[in-house]
Write a protein that binds this DNA or RNA. Structure first.
Length: 165
DNA sequence: CGCCAAAGATAAC
DNA sequence: GTTATCTTTGGCG
């Protein structure tokens, strides 16, 4: 186990809520009184009414964010990951809405390498709350969800457009 | 278990 | 176009 046995069984569909967004359907997963995960589901996925008070709160804030990107999330998020990843996520969460930072800038602040930052961001369990989409390549958009092109990147682009105004 | 080898959402020469 | 940099992951001894 050690470092290989972690949260591999996250593909269970026990979302506590599913909220429709313009670019995807957001699957909210909570554990006890903590938000532990947000998944991007294909458009067309049936929405699900909040199954708990916390899920309802999460949906409220997500909807508020979709309406006004300047909103700052105030949710009990439980970040599970390596110490390094938590540091990266913390740094990313400090990026103001409407702005972007390059992987190099984040890496420099954390005293590490750009590529390592990209990897840590890809492991981010709670996109939107931890705005990994605000981290872009020095020369362009960069990737998303461990890929450099495809649907995930389209989502990233949409989010940046959304915050840009 | 611990070590070696390869890859990745990059950046700089 | 190639090399540098750092973490994570998968395979093997």
């Amino acid at each position: 186990m050690s470092r290989s046995a972690r949260w591999r069984q996250a593909d269970r569909f026990d979302h506590q809520a599913r909220l429709a967004a313009p670019f995807a359907v957001l699957g909210v997963t909570t554990e006890e009184d903590w938000l532990v995960r947000i998944d991007y589901l294909p458009l067309g996925t049936p929405v699900l009414a909040p199954q708990s008070a916390l899920a309802r709160e999460v949906c409220e804030q997500l909807r508020a964010y979709l309406r006004d990107p300047r909103l700052r999330f105030d949710l009990p998020v439980r970040l599970s990951g390596t110490p390094f990843q938590q540091r990266v996520w913390e740094a990313v969460a400090a990026i103001p809405s409407g702005q972007t930072r390059s992987y190099a800038a984040v890496a420099k602040a954390l005293h590490t390498a750009p590529r390592a930052v990209g990897r840590a961001c890809g492991a981010n369990p709670v996109p939107l709350v931890v705005p990994c989409h605000r981290v872009v390549a020095a020369d362009g958009l960069g990737g998303f969800l461990h890929t450099r092109s495809g649907a995930p990147v389209a989502i990233k682009r949409w989010l940046l457009e959304h915050e840009r105004r």
